[in-house]
């Protein structure tokens, strides 16, 4: 089935099998930052923004996303660069496997105007990190969100 996806502003038209997950289509399009860490939509490493909301792209069929506007951790704008800089200074990434999911989720939170540490923590709770203990990630996001 032919579908269209606009990824980080670039339009892709691809022919996909209906059973194919969005995460696999994105990866095949070269967006390797979108990672698969589980099969139950728990870990959140595959989080992308789809039409303005964070979603787990391993839990969406590519055909469902037909026509959607998608942003991945490959994206660059002022907010994303600020997040990258803050993640680096706060040592918010270790093995890096969850980092794309953390960045896309953080990007959503900052854009939405997250208001408190509690909201940052709840906002990030859909992405598992096994390395950092989370504090440095939370602090990096708080800093960019001006909290």
């Amino acid at each position: 089935m032919k579908i269209a996806l606009r990824v980080n502003g670039v339009l892709h038209e691809v022919d996909v099998e209906p059973r194919k997950l969005l995460v696999h289509v994105l990866r095949e399009l070269g967006y390797k930052s979108v990672r698969v860490g589980c099969d139950t939509a728990t870990c959140g490493a595959c989080t992308v923004l789809m039409d303005g909301r964070p979603v787990k792209s391993c839990n969406v069929l590519a055909v469902q996303a037909d026509g959607a506007e998608i942003y991945t951790a490959d994206y660059s704008d002022e907010v994303m660069e600020k997040l990258r800089d803050a993640f680096k200074r706060h040592h918010a990434a270790q093995c890096g496997f969850c980092t794309s999911g953390m960045l896309t989720t953080a990007y959503y939170l900052v854009r939405r105007g997250v208001k408190s540490e509690e909201e940052v923590v709840e906002g990030l709770s859909g992405v598992l990190c096994r390395c950092t203990g989370y504090q440095n990630i939370v602090n990096a996001v708080k800093e960019v969100a001006g909290l």
């Binding site: 990866r27 490959d74 990258r84 680096k88 040592h91 990434a93 890096g96």
Partner: peptide
């Protein structure tokens, strides 16, 4: 000192085995 590894990781460019 912040990590030199982060340039790749934070841009999604680090290559894991599935990549």
């Amino acid at each position: 000192i912040p990590r030199v590894e982060d340039e790749l990781i934070l841009r999604g460019k680090a290559t894991y085995v599935d990549d």
